[in-house]
């Protein structure tokens, strides 16, 4: 195949999608996008309604003095975690249509930006993992103090310890897997792409 043959094949109508398929792309994409947005919005409304209801109930119980001080202390982090996730998903939902920072950069710059973002994400996750590790002795100490002060029984203290240790260990494992299976391979691939531009 010489250059002329190549150009002839390349510019042939067979190498184009055709009007009908283009219309199908657009219609299908918009339809699915709108449907996905609606479902996400519904999910968020339901989640925040449920969280607000539960939080108000807990506050009411605290004001009425129906919760033991030990349980009231535990409810704080227990409620804070789903609220934090809810806010995280809301922010993601709101920024869904904002472009990635490297969308319209030259390819080599876009790859470098993606590589830097990968490094930043790894650093962020390592910091969170470190904080989780630091939480372990602090929480153990806090539970021990509650027990010593007679605020929680031995059985309650053990349950709380098991729950928090399990939650922290699972979170740490998820972060490690995200780094090893997601970010590390991506870093390797981006690095090799950047090098191939040099």
């Amino acid at each position: 195949m010489n250059d002329d043959d190549l150009q002839q094949i390349w510019k042939s109508p067979r190498n184009e999608p055709g009007e009908q398929r283009q219309r199908q792309w657009t219609r299908g994409f918009i339809r699915k996008l709108q449907r996905a947005r609606r479902l996400q919005a519904l999910w968020l409304v339901w989640t925040f309604a449920a969280l607000t209801g539960i939080s108000l109930l807990v506050l009411l119980q605290v004001f009425l003095g129906k919760l033991t001080p030990g349980l009231a202390v535990v409810m704080g982090p227990l409620l804070a975690t789903p609220w934090a996730f809810g806010i995280h998903f809301l922010r993601r939902f709101r920024s869904k249509d904002s472009p990635k920072p490297h969308t319209d950069l030259p390819l080599v710059d876009a790859l470098n930006v993606a590589l830097r973002a990968n490094h930043a994400a790894q650093a962020r996750l390592r910091t969170i993992r470190l904080l989780l590790c630091a939480m372990l002795p602090i929480l153990t100490g806090a539970i021990w103090q509650l027990h010593v002060a007679g605020k929680v029984s031995g059985r309650e203290a053990r349950s709380m310890a098991v729950f928090f240790i399990a939650a922290l260990t699972i979170s740490g494992a998820v972060i490690t897997l995200r780094i090893l299976l997601g970010l590390k391979p991506q870093e390797k691939r981006l690095g090799s792409l950047v090098r191939s531009f040099e």
Partner: peptide, 28 residues
């Protein structure tokens, strides 16, 4: 392309912008 539309300021030709988005997306 959908996400990049709001950031298109019309400084470059739309075809250049689309080339950039398509090739960036394919590479990444």
């Amino acid at each position: 392309i959908w996400k990049a539309i709001p950031s298109y300021r019309g400084e470059a030709k739309s075809i250049t912008f689309v080339y950039r988005i398509c090739h960036n997306a394919a590479l990444l």
